[in-house]
């Protein structure tokens, strides 16, 4: 489902060159739940961003569902992100000016769904994360755990095949964190391929496979 070959990422400024990822080779099968671990600054998030097509590699090949995408332009990449990928961020990245349901509808705005279909799908996604009673609320009225559940609903509303989670429990207490991992596990059991960046060994143990990074290099 996700294949990376010899991926390298270099950040350049006028005077410094930093190698963030070095020769990464990765193959995530359909339906796998993979976690990425490593110390801070080792390139976990950079790797996730490259897998999620949020950032481009400096070198290497990326295949998503059999398509080589590293040379795709914005016009080609946007629908791929929209249909294939769903993101969950550590800091939720909800739009505070929109209600919960409007936030969840965002991925559907860039599809051909009409307003009624969008509403139905968003309600369904919120029900899955147990927040059907908070649809009209605004993010500021929610707890951290509830915000992350809204973010999960937003990630799954378009029924993407791949879910990418960047430290989804990083800003939550352990009870809330467990709740979020339970939801992710249930999504995985229903067929979603999940790649999750985490610092937490206990969370990583609940995934199928662990990838360890150290200074931009894959060590496990």
């Amino acid at each position: 489902m996700i294949k990376l070959q010899n991926v390298e990422k270099v950040y350049r400024t006028s005077s410094i060159e930093t190698l963030a990822l070095n020769n990464i080779n990765l193959d995530v099968k359909k339906g796998e739940f993979v976690s990425i671990m490593g110390p801070s600054g080792c390139g976990k998030s950079t790797l996730l961003n490259i897998i999620g097509l949020l950032d481009a590699p400096s070198k290497g090949i990326i295949e998503i569902d059999g398509r080589k995408v590293e040379r795709f332009n914005d016009k080609e990449i946007a629908p791929l992100r929209n249909k294939m990928l769903g993101f969950i961020f550590q800091s939720f990245h909800l739009i505070n000016d929109l209600s919960v349901i409007d936030n969840v509808e965002i991925p559907l705005l860039y599809r051909s769904n009409n307003a009624k279909q969008r509403r139905e799908l968003a309600e369904e996604a919120l029900e899955k994360v147990g927040l059907a009673n908070r649809m009209k609320h605004f993010p500021k009225q929610l707890s951290g755990g509830q915000k992350q559940r809204v973010a999960i609903a937003r990630a799954i509303v378009g029924k993407p095949e791949i879910i990418l989670a960047d430290e989804p429990t990083g800003n939550l207490d352990s009870a809330m964190g467990n709740e979020i991992i339970n939801i992710l596990q249930s999504l995985n059991e229903n067929g979603a391929t999940i790649v999750m960046v985490t610092h937490d060994d206990a969370m990583a143990k609940r995934t199928h496979r662990l990838i360890r990074l150290f200074d931009g290099t894959q060590v496990l």
């Binding site: 949020l54 791929l80 769903g86 860039y110």
Partner: peptide
């Protein structure tokens, strides 16, 4: 941040 989110979820430029 909103722009980032919209783009991440498939909004073309």
């Amino acid at each position: 941040s909103e722009i980032g989110v919209r783009k991440a979820f498939g909004a073309p430029s």
